[in-house]
Computed example of a mutant assay.
Amino acid sequence: MTTVASKQAGPVVHRAGPRFGAEITGVDLTRPVDDPTADTLRRAFAEHKVLVFRGQHLTPDQHVEAVRIFAEPFDHPTALRHPDNPLVYPYNVAQTGKASTWHIGGLWRTPVFAIESLTYQEVPELGGHTLWADLQAAYDDLSEPFKELLGSVKAVYDGNAENYAQGSRKNAPGDTVEHPVVLEHPLTGRKGLFISTSARGLTGVTPQEGTALLDHLLRHASSPNYTIRFGWRPGDFVLWDNQATWHYAVDDYGDGARVYRKVIGVEPLRTTS
């Protein structure tokens, strides 16, 4: 497949791990892509769940258009906006703090974000990698009786979007929201665990059972058996399936720089073949 720009040979998928994750070459996302190329990229995303495009150096507008290949960019109600495009959210960990917990984005929302994506402007010389874990593979390895139990269990989260904003003290009042701990993916139909470290508890079981179950699920889903790791250079672009994976930003770089922009996607697009 080729893009609109004739110099591009078409996307090549380089698997980064045995379960999931891939780097994509042969595509210049600073230029428009044609429909067959976009469809190839969507198939790769459905299969690999985390896609990395090195050295793209996307502008805010180009970042939005790159996400639009996969899903509709989301207008976040509480996020700090980039002056060049209101659908782009800038982050500098020196001001915003680090996201060094296993988590899923947009848990205040039903459904949660389909896709999250980042473009990196500044990264530490060493460290600052990001981990993802395959929640569907983690679910596959559970016993059938345990899967049956989890099918009736939900997790409780903070439902106020203000508490997810940059610099928030996370004490704004509001209702909670519940999500099933087993999610059937809306595009592929594949089941996976759906759990985050910010869960306040589980419903459908006693509090004591919920504590034990939650502890086990969090440990199981973050096992190295299900993880992949990427390091970064300025200009790299990454997007991931927020309904099939969770992620962790490794805090091993002290006061080193980490500056990036985020674009969120909802209502994911299906492939046409």
Results as ranks from 00 to 15, higher is better:
70 F>Q: 10
245 T>V: 02
30 T>M: 03
233 R>W: 08
63 H>R: 07
155 A>I: 00
225 N>D: 11
138 A>I: 12
47 E>M: 08
241 D>I: 11
95 Q>C: 07
217 L>N: 09
91 Y>N: 10
188 T>R: 15
14 H>C: 07
194 F>W: 02
223 S>T: 01
15 R>T: 15
140 D>V: 06
228 I>S: 05
25 T>I: 13
87 L>I: 05
13 V>P: 03
177 V>D: 00
12 V>F: 00
173 P>H: 02
21 G>M: 15
213 L>Q: 14
160 N>F: 11
128 G>P: 08
173 P>W: 01
218 L>P: 01
30 T>A: 13
139 Y>F: 07
233 R>V: 07
240 W>M: 10
62 Q>Y: 02
164 Y>H: 15
221 A>R: 06
11 P>T: 06
22 A>N: 10
248 Y>S: 09
145 P>Y: 05
221 A>F: 01
149 L>G: 06
251 D>R: 10
169 R>V: 13
107 L>W: 04
132 W>Q: 09
127 G>I: 13
272 T>N: 14
215 D>E: 05
114 A>D: 12
20 F>W: 01
14 H>A: 07
128 G>H: 02
231 G>K: 10
180 P>W: 08
239 L>W: 03
264 I>F: 11
146 F>A: 09
113 F>G: 01
173 P>R: 01
271 T>H: 14
8 Q>P: 10
219 R>M: 14
93 V>W: 15
232 W>N: 04
98 K>S: 09
129 H>D: 07
162 E>D: 12
42 R>L: 04
257 A>V: 12
38 A>I: 00
106 G>M: 14
249 A>P: 01
180 P>Q: 01
75 D>C: 06
232 W>R: 06
12 V>Y: 00
254 G>A: 07
119 T>Q: 13
118 L>Y: 09
243 Q>T: 03
68 R>H: 11
251 D>Y: 07
80 L>K: 06
185 H>R: 02
217 L>F: 04
147 K>I: 02
200 R>T: 05
196 S>R: 00
205 V>I: 04
205 V>D: 01
18 P>M: 06
148 E>Y: 12
217 L>G: 13
268 P>A: 15
180 P>T: 15
260 Y>D: 08
100 S>L: 04
271 T>K: 02
212 A>T: 15
271 T>F: 06
48 H>V: 11
100 S>E: 13
16 A>F: 08
138 A>R: 08
143 S>I: 06
41 L>R: 02
23 E>F: 11
246 W>M: 04
187 L>F: 09
1 M>F: 08
16 A>E: 11
13 V>T: 11
194 F>M: 12
23 E>D: 08
61 D>V: 13
219 R>F: 04
6 S>M: 10
143 S>C: 05
64 V>H: 14
80 L>Q: 12
248 Y>M: 12
8 Q>F: 08
97 G>L: 03
123 V>G: 01
102 W>R: 14
206 T>Q: 07
238 V>H: 11
240 W>F: 15
258 R>P: 14
65 E>T: 09
195 I>R: 00
266 V>K: 03
150 L>H: 07
160 N>A: 15
39 D>K: 02
73 P>V: 12
241 D>Q: 14
180 P>C: 09
258 R>C: 12
85 N>P: 05
149 L>P: 04
102 W>S: 13
85 N>C: 08
215 D>T: 14
42 R>A: 14
